[in-house]
Lab assay of single mutants.
Amino acid sequence: TEYKLVVVGAGGVGKSALTIQLIQNHFVDEYDPTIEDSYRKQVVIDGETCLLDILDTAGQEEYSAMRDQYMRTGEGFLCVFAINNTKSFEDIHQYREQIKRVKDSDDVPMVLVGNKCDLAARTVESRQAQDLARSYGIPYIETSAKTRQGVEDAFYTLVREIRQH
C-alpha cells in the first residue's frame, strides 16, 4: 500500500529536517529553504509493509500558489509548527483551512506536530497545542528532528489516521 503524505507549515519550522531524519536517519543542521522535494521510503507499520511517498513543501509565502496542487494529491498532512515560534503555531489554522477548502472536506487525515521540542526556549505550551488538536479532532505529537524523538511516531500516526479514514 502506498501513502501520499504531505508536510506543511511555516518556513523554518523543520519540515525538511523531520523528513530527512525519518528517511535518512540524520539531522540536517543548516537551513536551506525548500521549494519542493519528495522522498520515498518502505516501512512496516503495524505489520503492514507500506511505501511512504512524502512531499516536503515550501513554507515560504512566495510558493503558496503551489499549495493547491499538492493538497489535492496528498492523502494525509503533517501540519508542523516549531514550539519556539508562536507565529508558526498561529499559521497552522490557515494551512488547515486551505487543506479543507482544496479537499472540499472537513475530515482530512492530519496530525499536528510541534517540532524542536529539544529546545528550552518554548513559547507554545503543550497544552495550547493539545487544545488546538482536540478542537480539530486530530492527534498532537511533539518531535525533535535533532534527537529523533517522536519522528517515526508522527509519520506513522498519520498513516494510521489515513487507514482509519
Rank of each mutant, 00 (worst) to 15 (best):
Q60A: 14
D104I: 05
T123F: 07
L119A: 15
I162V: 06
C50T: 10
Y136D: 06
V124R: 10
Y140Q: 02
I141C: 07
N85G: 10
G150E: 15
G59S: 05
M71A: 08
H93L: 15
Q42Y: 08
C117P: 02
M66C: 14
L132G: 04
V111F: 02
M71G: 06
G11L: 15
E62I: 14
Q128Y: 07
E75Y: 12
V102C: 12
F89M: 11
D153N: 06
D46W: 04
T123M: 07
S64V: 11
E142Q: 07
T143L: 15
D53N: 04
S16Y: 00
H26N: 10
R160G: 08
S126W: 06
V111E: 00
G11E: 10
I138H: 05
K4I: 02
V8C: 07
M110F: 11
I23V: 05
P109Y: 05
E36H: 03
A10M: 06
K41C: 09
Q149N: 09
K87A: 12
Q42V: 08
L119R: 13
R40H: 04
R72K: 09
L51Q: 12
T49L: 10
R72S: 13
D32M: 03
K41A: 14
S38F: 02
R40G: 05
A129P: 05
S16N: 00
R72A: 14
R163Q: 13
D32H: 02
P33L: 02
D153M: 05
A120V: 08
I23Y: 09
G114P: 01
A120I: 07
V113K: 02
A133P: 02
R148K: 08
Y136E: 09
L112W: 12
V113C: 08
V7Q: 02
T157R: 11
E97L: 08
A120S: 09
K87F: 09
E142A: 04
Q69R: 10
G47R: 06
T19I: 09
S135K: 13
Q24G: 15
N115F: 00
Y140H: 03
D46T: 05
Q69W: 10
L78R: 02
S64A: 07
S126I: 11
L5H: 00
S105C: 11
V13Y: 02
A133Q: 04
E30H: 03
F89P: 03
D37L: 00
Q42C: 08
Y39M: 00
V111L: 06
D131S: 08
Q24V: 15
S135Q: 09
Q94F: 15
E161S: 10
A58R: 11
Q98H: 13
L158G: 01
F155M: 11
R127I: 09
E48Q: 12
G76Y: 07
R163I: 11
R148Y: 14
Q24W: 05
V28I: 13
T143W: 00
D153H: 08
C79Q: 03
E30L: 04
P33K: 04
D68Q: 06
V124F: 12
E61M: 15
N25Q: 12
P139M: 07
Q24P: 01
Q164N: 07
R122C: 13
F155Q: 00
D104V: 09
E152Y: 13
V44N: 14
F77S: 01
A10T: 07
S38V: 15
L51F: 08
A129T: 06
R40L: 04
S135G: 05
Y156D: 09
T147I: 09
K103W: 09
D29R: 06
D29P: 11
V111N: 00
V28N: 06
S88P: 04
Q24K: 04
C79H: 03
R72M: 08
S144A: 13
I35V: 05
D91F: 14
Y31Q: 02
A145H: 00
S105Q: 12
V111P: 01
T49Y: 13
L78M: 12
R72F: 09
T19M: 04
G74H: 09
L18N: 04
R127V: 11
T143Q: 03
T86I: 12
D91T: 12
R134A: 10
G9M: 00
Y3F: 10
L112F: 09
Y39V: 01
V7M: 08
R134D: 08
Y31V: 02
E61Y: 15
Y140G: 01
L5E: 01
R163F: 09
K146D: 15
H26T: 06
T123D: 11
G14F: 00
V124N: 09
T73A: 14
D106R: 09
A82V: 08
K103M: 12
V151T: 11
K4S: 11
K103R: 10
Q128G: 06
C117R: 07
P33H: 02
I35K: 01
C79Y: 15
R101N: 10
T147Y: 10
L22W: 09
T49E: 07
V111A: 05
Y95C: 15
L119I: 11
T73R: 09
A154V: 14
K15E: 01
Q128T: 10
K87Y: 05
R127A: 15
S64C: 14
E161T: 09
P139F: 05
K103T: 13
E75D: 14
I99Y: 02
E48I: 05
K146M: 13
A154T: 07
V113G: 02
Q60M: 14
V151M: 13
G12N: 15
P109S: 05
F27E: 02
E161L: 12
T57M: 08
E161Y: 09
Q24D: 07
G59D: 03
D153T: 07
E75P: 03
S135A: 10
T147H: 12
N85R: 06
F89Y: 08
T1K: 09
V7H: 03
V102K: 05
G114M: 09
H26E: 11
V111T: 03
Y156F: 11
Y136V: 09
T143Y: 02
Y95Q: 04
L132C: 06
N25H: 12
G47I: 05
V43R: 13
D56I: 00
G114V: 06
T49D: 05
A58G: 11
Y3K: 11
Q98R: 14
I99E: 01
D153F: 05
E61S: 13
K87V: 08
S16Q: 01
I54V: 08
Q164Y: 03
V113W: 00
V113S: 02
V151K: 03
S88C: 09
F155R: 00
D118Q: 03
E61H: 15
V28W: 13
M110C: 03
K4E: 06
S135I: 06
M66T: 12
A120K: 08
K15A: 00
T34S: 01
